[in-house]
């Protein structure tokens, strides 16, 4: 990464893996983040899908190499292949489905034990649009109002996340709420040191350099401030 060091804004790539129970919206989150799009029927992920997206931070640019894994239980045994060397992970649950948080906790435990040390993990409760506070702030505690599909309170998940030292967000891939914030937060949380040594020398240079430079030319884009990383 010696070359990027010369650039006004250093750029580096970060391997990020998405994990979580089937149909919690992993692929949708990625789709929202990468293409700012939402599809009701996405092809199921076989093994894993690979996408990239850049995220501009004030001081640097992060290129996410996103591994979006299959959620079906039996694919779990493939997961180590994908989270190998990952510097960040998005563990997604469906906040209308309690079992998905259980599964998410399993993933967190797995990552903490098996993934690279120092991996940045974000716990993400997706499908906020199905709850009453869907459009509002995710911090609002849901009551038992009718029509609220929420089954996992913000507090419960947040407490857990704090215990485990995870970033925590509630999002809606459908509305786009909080999606880019997740990725921005992760980008911010990645320690500089791990960026330098993240990939083997030469890795991602050939493919990534031109794009990165282009991004750098664009500089910090204010119009994108809201969407932070979408480009």
């Amino acid at each position: 990464m010696a070359d990027s060091a010369n650039a006004p804004k250093p750029s580096s790539s970060v391997k990020l893996v998405l994990l979580g129970e089937a149909a919690v919206g992993k692929s949708s989150l990625v789709l929202r983040f990468v293409n700012n799009d939402f599809q009701e029927n996405k092809e199921p992920t076989i093994g894993a899908a690979f996408l990239t997206q850049k995220c501009n931070l004030p001081t640097r640019t992060i290129k996410f190499e996103i591994w979006d894994t299959a959620g079906q239980e039996r694919f779990a045994s493939l997961a180590p292949m994908y989270y190998r060397n990952a510097q960040a992970a998005l563990v997604v649950y469906d906040l209308t489905k309690p079992t998905s948080l259980v599964k998410a906790k399993h993933w967190v435990a797995e990552l903490q034990r098996q993934a690279s040390p120092g991996i940045v993990i974000a716990l993400v409760g997706n499908k906020l649009d199905l709850t009453n506070d869907g459009a509002g702030s995710g911090a609002a505690e849901s009551g038992d109002d009718s029509g609220d599909a929420r089954k996992i309170t913000t507090e419960e998940a947040k407490t857990y996340a704090e215990e485990e030292g995870l970033l925590f967000f509630e999002t809606s891939a459908k509305t786009g709420y909080n999606v880019t914030e997740v990725f921005t937060a992760i980008a911010n949380a990645i320690p500089e040191t791990s960026l330098k040594s993240a990939r083997g020398p030469g890795a991602s240079h050939a493919a990534g350099r031109t794009e990165e430079q282009r991004v750098n030319l664009n500089g910090p884009r204010d119009p994108n401030a809201k969407e932070g990383c979408a480009c």
Partner: peptide, 21 residues
């Protein structure tokens, strides 16, 4: 091996879906 690319992340879907996808 040198560039740390894991082949199966590419080839696994080939086999699993018999190249259909």
């Amino acid at each position: 091996v040198k560039s740390d690319v894991q082949l199966s992340v590419v080839s696994l879907p080939w086999f699993l879906s018999l190249y259909v996808n």
